[in-house]
Design a protein around this nucleic acid. Structure first.
Lengths: 130, 130
DNA sequence: CATGACACCTGTAGCCACTCCAGGTGCAAG
DNA sequence: CTTGCACCTGGAGTGGCTACAGGTGTCATG
């Protein structure tokens, strides 16, 4: 059994964030020591690590919760997990596409700027009438 | 002179967002009609459009404000604008790189999953001990 | 037994950039 | 006179934390 500090170290989730997850009902309330300190089991820490990995993959907390709910190991869960992961992949792809457009636009702007003309082409373009 | 609805239409910034920008001091308080309705000049609308373009390029509002502050047309502003734009481009690039890593990881996970084995490889990997 | 350095506790507020809502006012057309 | 629209204000909610302030518990050292 571990305190919140150890749980944080072992899961990679910060102390504040663990408490936030508890507040928002994402993880169950852990046991408490006599002094009122939170006391985490190995399973609790596993759950936190699971959520951390989901977050690292960009899943929103709601998805993390859904995926966590699928870990009972029933037959249909694989299809559901795959669906969640694929839709996340789509979302990530969409974001990448969007950011690439932005990057191209920024590159063009800054390249124009290297002319170092009197009036700044970046500002001119942002100010343009249409 | 235009009401807030027209200002929104012409700038692409929503009514609520315009009011939010005003609340947060990003744009100056506009004139008011006798009835207390906000009344926007062409210049006001230009400012909103400028901010909209900055946001579309992913600049945070603080950058938008800085860029807006550079539009007096003094000589040094071009270098400053370029600096802001380049650092924004870096930030966008970093985000893209990060998202591409995530996408690769998600792709690998979902591909493994097509095996449709008994235990879901996605969940297994998220649950793994390290 | 006192002291100091920690780890932990609660509750609250702040971040970003909006978005939405309830409940009210002003004004013109039918 | 009523209907409908555009507008008003003030406040709360979103996601996912993060950062306090001010208190308590635990342990080693002097």
């Amino acid at each position: 059994m571990a305190g919140i500090g150890q749980a944080a170290d072992q899961s990679g989730v910060s102390i504040e964030t663990i408490r936030y997850y508890e507040r928002s009902g994402l993880v169950p309330k852990p046991l408490r020591t006599a002094a009122g300190h939170r006391n985490y089991s190995g399973q609790d820490i596993g759950r936190l690590r699971f959520i951390k990995r989901c977050r690292d993959l960009g899943f929103p907390l709601t998805d993390a919760q859904s995926l966590l709910g699928l870990t009972d190991g029933s037959m249909t869960t694989c299809a559901e997990a795959k669906e969640i992961a694929e839709s996340q992949r789509m979302a990530v792809q969409a974001k990448i596409t969007q950011l690439q457009k932005i990057e191209t636009a920024l590159l063009r702007l800054t390249e124009q700027c290297s002319d170092s003309a009197n009036s700044c082409p970046i500002l001119l373009e942002l100010l343009a009438d249409e």
